[in-house]
Simulated scan of single mutants.
Amino acid sequence: MAAASGDAGNRADAGHLRVRDFMRHEGIALESPEERLSPDDTLMKGAFLHRELRRGLLLHVSDAIEERAFTATSLLPEELSCIFFLEGSVDLAIGGRRFAFHGEGGLAEGVAIVNSCPEHFARASRGRQHLRHLVVSATPEWLHRDALEAVTDGTGGARLLRNHLAEHRWTLTPRMIDLVRQIFSPSPLVPELRDLYLEGRAVELVAETMAAVLRSDRREAGGATLTRQDAVCLQRAKDFVEAHAGEPMSVEAIAREAGISASGLQRLFRAAESRSVFDYVRNVRLERAFTALGRGEATVQEASAIAGYTSPANFATAFRRRFGIVPTAVRRTGLS
Rank of each mutant, 00 (worst) to 15 (best):
S5L: 06
N10G: 14
R11T: 11
A12R: 15
R20F: 14
F22V: 04
M23C: 06
L30Q: 03
P39S: 10
P39C: 08
D41Y: 11
D41H: 10
L43Y: 06
H50W: 13
H50T: 07
R51P: 11
G56N: 01
S62C: 11
S62T: 15
E67L: 12
A69C: 10
A72G: 09
C82K: 03
F84T: 01
F85G: 08
L86T: 09
G88E: 02
R98P: 11
F99P: 02
H102Y: 07
H102E: 09
G105N: 01
L107R: 03
E109I: 13
N115Y: 06
C117E: 15
H120E: 09
G127H: 11
G127K: 13
H130Y: 06
V135K: 10
V136C: 04
E141H: 05
W142D: 04
L143A: 00
A147H: 00
L148C: 01
E149V: 00
T155L: 04
G156P: 07
L165T: 14
E167I: 04
T171C: 05
P174Y: 14
R175P: 01
M176R: 02
Q182H: 00
V190T: 12
D195V: 09
D195G: 07
L196P: 07
V203Q: 01
A207Y: 09
S216F: 13
R218M: 02
R219N: 04
E220K: 12
G222C: 08
T227E: 08
R228Y: 10
A231E: 10
L234E: 06
R236M: 03
A237H: 03
A237K: 09
D239Q: 08
V241F: 05
E242T: 09
A245V: 01
A245T: 00
S250C: 03
S250M: 03
V251A: 14
A253M: 08
R256D: 14
R256Q: 14
I260F: 00
S261Y: 05
A262P: 02
A262D: 11
S263R: 15
Q266H: 15
A271M: 10
V277Q: 08
N283K: 11
L286A: 07
A289C: 02
F290R: 11
T291C: 11
L293Y: 09
A298R: 15
T299F: 12
V300A: 15
E302Q: 15
A305L: 11
A307M: 07
F315D: 10
R320A: 14
R320M: 13
R321V: 05
T328I: 10
G334R: 10
G334W: 09
G334H: 02
L335G: 08
